[in-house]
């Protein structure tokens, strides 16, 4: 079943047809979401009532567009803030983790490495509730001890950030470790021989080498955080990030406004993905 092995025409046709069907299946839901963003109707479904930009730029009821819909805009801002915090934090910790596992031999290293991987195999909802439970235990303990109510430990943005950080860090660690393993240690030794201190050598030689992986990890972390649903759902307070805000609206019944938001999301994330690919190629 490789090109050099002759196969009957019928088999090749069926196989090619199957692959084609598969890609149709992949494209179908996204295509309909995108197309119905332009439907001049209250519902993202047939019949097609004609083409309109109103779901993006409309200013009047009932067709208020994305760019004039306060709730959605605020949710986008919240999501971006959360995602930026998560990306920054997880790449910092991911980098220190990568150095730790790459440069040091110590007892319990294998165990620690497995622990580091664990967040990937814990369901997102369970991660969310465990952090919810612990932060509330902490808040109640502080209240009992000092009669202080720490609002930050109640469901809200801080917990959302910590919850997402808890598993995205693993991914950042893996991405950065993979690049650090390819690093030629003799380059660093050369810097040391030339009189650099250890810190200077790492800063001027190793970190620039790691930069593509670190930027890749920032983008991946940002996207994962922006799209996260399960963990966020359990930890969210009154400021809803975009996915939660969209979910709430979707439950009430949808208008093409949601299609318009989705289309913008698709464009945004493909653009980011493209930037990463171009950056990595350079």
């Amino acid at each position: 079943m490789i090109p050099t092995i002759p196969q009957s025409r019928g088999f090749r046709l069926i196989y090619g047809g199957y692959v084609l069907l598969f890609f149709l299946y992949l494209a179908l839901p996204l295509t309909v979401v995108a197309v119905f963003a332009f439907n001049d109707s209250q519902f993202p479904s047939l019949p097609w009532e004609g083409f309109t930009w109103n779901w993006f730029f409309g200013e009047d009821r009932p067709q208020i567009g994305v760019f004039h819909e306060r709730g959605i805009l605020r949710a986008v801002g919240t999501s971006a803030f959360v995602a930026a915090c998560v990306a920054l934090l997880s790449v910092c910790v991911g980098t220190t983790n990568a150095f730790l596992f790459n440069r040091y031999e110590f007892r319990g290293k294998g165990l620690l490495y497995v622990l580091m991987l664990l967040p990937l195999v814990i369901p997102g909802i369970v991660l969310g509730i465990s952090i919810l439970v612990f932060s509330s235990t902490l808040a109640n303990g502080i209240w009992d001890l000092a009669q202080m109510d720490i609002q930050a430990l109640r469901p809200g943005l801080l917990l959302v950030i910590l919850g997402q950080f808890s598993f995205i860090t693993t991914i950042a660690t893996l991405v950065i470790t993979a690049r650090l393993q390819k690093f030629d240690r003799t380059l660093e030794e050369a810097a040391l021989n030339l009189g650099a201190t250890r810190l200077v050598a790492v800063r001027t030689i190793t970190i620039p080498f790691l930069m593509p992986a670190m930027i890749g990890a920032v983008v991946v972390a940002f996207l994962m955080s922006f799209e996260n649903f399960n963990t966020t759902l359990m930890l969210v307070g009154s400021d809803a990030p975009l996915t939660i805000a969209m979910f709430d609206r979707l439950k009430e019944g949808s208008t093409p406004l949601l299609n318009a938001v989705s289309l913008l999301l698709m464009l945004g994330s493909s653009l980011l993905a493209l930037v990463v690919i171009l950056f990595q190629r350079r």
Partner: peptide, 20 residues
């Protein structure tokens, strides 16, 4: 092409199936 759909939020993918 296999990767693209997964840069999009799961919510959007589910929404697509609802429309269909």
């Amino acid at each position: 092409l296999c990767l693209i759909p997964f840069y999009v939020s799961e919510l959007v993918r589910t929404f697509g199936w609802m429309i269909l």
